[in-house]
Amino acid sequence: MQISGFEFPDDLYYDRQHNWACVEGNTVVQGMTEFGQKLAREIVYVEIPPVGKAVTQGQTFMSMESGKWVGRIPALVSGKIVAVNEELEFEPTLVNQSPYDQGWLVKIEMSNPAELNNLLRADSPEFKAFVEEEAAKYKDVL
């Protein structure tokens, strides 16, 4: 669905840091939302974490650079990284160009699927209100 002019696919889960999670069985694919990449500006480097690394929901586990700013990305669920998007080593701007598809970041095998309840859905009034508030706050940048 569209919120404030940005796409938020209905089947994904979201956090309040502009990241999305797509559930595939016991695995979650994580990426940055269209809104998030716009706010981040052009991504020039992505640090690909090693496969097998343990991650914790809400804790940062990888870095990205844009505008000389090295930012940290939190994991949307706890578990173990089972795949990483190696293309981002060569084409970090895929995060900008294709945030919901080719710009995915990592796949995490969930250790506690109940944590998905801590995330938001696109059609929830809470999420809509959050995005609208963010869009209003950053209207000059977006």
């Binding site: 500006r41 940062t60 505008g67 000389k68 700013w69 090295v70 930012g71 940290r72």
Partner: peptide, 19 residues
């Protein structure tokens, strides 16, 4: 924008951020 200071068209300060 986004992270520079210029004077008479020339950069005069370097800046960056880490989280």
């Amino acid at each position: 924008p986004v992270n520079d200071i210029i004077a008479s068209g020339r950069k005069i300060s370097g800046n960056g951020v880490a989280e």
